[in-house]
């Protein structure tokens, strides 16, 4: 059954990816990509990698779709046809693909007892010692936030840098008449008119439903943030869900209102604050006489120190990711102007 599920999902994945490559309309490709992303996360679930599936769900299927749409609003949705079929790249791709497939023959069977991962001393140590040493049930969190704290610090910095990069590129002064902001509110396309009835100018249903939902989405983000020690979740996922709550608010009520609530300057402050918090924990442990990011010294009891360290570090990651997602969304959504386009 397990094997069958995997093969079936793989086949669907290949079919979906080929379709993404094949279609010329970028909007269609975006929708297919979101479907493929759901399939991808299903594969992670069947592999029992909950934390990864969590991230894929939040980032791949949700935020990416929104950001792609934001990009499409900037660049239009039709792809320029390829100039001509070139032989050399095709051969190159085929040979690399063939080599990769050949390499899979050497890979161990999934879940076999004698794979390098199972035999490694490191795995044994993580599985046996980490509950005593760090004392939190979710081993993924103890590995990510404590044993490999440096790595995660690096990742957080990458997110930070990406957001800064997007801000630098997209937030440049843009030639835009001041009244455009008002005009684009009523950008209904004329196509609906020949149907005898125009679509309603204000969408009451999403409006009211979102109002009910947003507090719970935010609460859920906090829940994921603080329960990363016990189950799947943690700073990355919580950050994305939190940003998703604000993005939903922005989609419904408009970017200008979200910006009033949470100006770009504040987002930038949070962006830097998260990374500083993470690094600050490291520096604090150095001041207390340990190594950088050695949480044992943060408190009298090493286990309590680990708890405190992981908590603060995860908080830093969560804040940075929220701010980065929002900054990127502001960057993309703030630039696009409404315009009619053909999608079919």
């Amino acid at each position: 059954m397990e094997e069958f599920t995997d093969i079936f999902l793989m086949l669907l994945l290949v079919a979906g990816s080929l379709a993404v490559l094949y279609v010329r309309n970028l909007f269609v490709a975006t929708m297919l990509l979101s479907a493929v992303s759901f399939l991808m996360a299903l594969l992670f679930v069947t592999l029992d990698a909950v934390d990864v599936a969590f991230t894929e769900a939040a980032v791949g299927a949700g935020i990416s779709t929104v950001l792609y749409l934001g990009t499409l609003a900037l660049v239009g949705s039709s792809e320029r046809p390829a100039a001509k079929l070139s032989v050399i790249p095709l051969l190159l791709a085929l040979s690399v693909g063939g080599a990769l497939i050949y390499a899979t023959f050497d890979m161990p069977v999934i879940g076999a007892a004698d794979t390098p991962v199972q035999l490694s001393n490191l795995t044994k140590r993580f599985v046996e010692i980490s509950p005593i040493e760090i004392g939190i049930p979710n081993m993924v969190t103890s590995v990510l936030a404590s044993y490999r704290g440096f790595d995660t610090f690096g990742e957080t910095t990458v997110v930070f840098t990406a957001a800064i990069g997007v801000l630098l590129i997209l937030s440049q002064k843009h030639v835009r008449r001041p009244e455009e902001d008002e005009v684009e509110q009523s950008g209904l396309k004329p196509a609906a008119k020949d149907h005898g009835q125009v679509g309603s100018p204000h969408d009451l249903i999403p409006h009211v439903v979102s109002k009910v939902l947003i507090p719970f989405i935010l609460l859920f983000a906090f829940y994921v943030q603080f329960h990363g020690d016990f189950g799947p979740g943690g700073g990355f996922q919580a950050g994305v869900i939190m940003a998703a709550g604000f993005i939903l608010y922005s989609l419904i009520f408009g970017l200008h209102i979200t910006k009033k609530l949470l100006p770009l300057r504040v987002v930038e402050l949070f962006l830097a604050f998260g990374v500083l918090l993470y690094g600050g924990v490291g520096v604090a442990s150095m001041i207390k006489g340990g190594n950088f990011l050695d949480y044992n010294v943060l408190s009298a009891d090493p286990v309590a120190g680990q708890h405190l360290g992981i908590l603060l570090v995860e908080l830093g990651v969560g804040i940075t990711v929220t701010a980065a997602m929002l900054a990127i969304f502001y960057g993309f959504a703030g630039r696009a102007q409404g315009r009619g386009k053909d999608v079919n």
Binding site: S210, K211, V212, I214, P215, L218, L219, F222, Y223, F226, Y249, L261
Partner: peptide
């Protein structure tokens, strides 16, 4: 968390 969410919700006017 509930306090923060309530505060945000108030500011969001939802």
């Amino acid at each position: 968390s509930c306090l923060i969410v309530v505060l945000i919700a108030r500011r969001m006017d939802v």
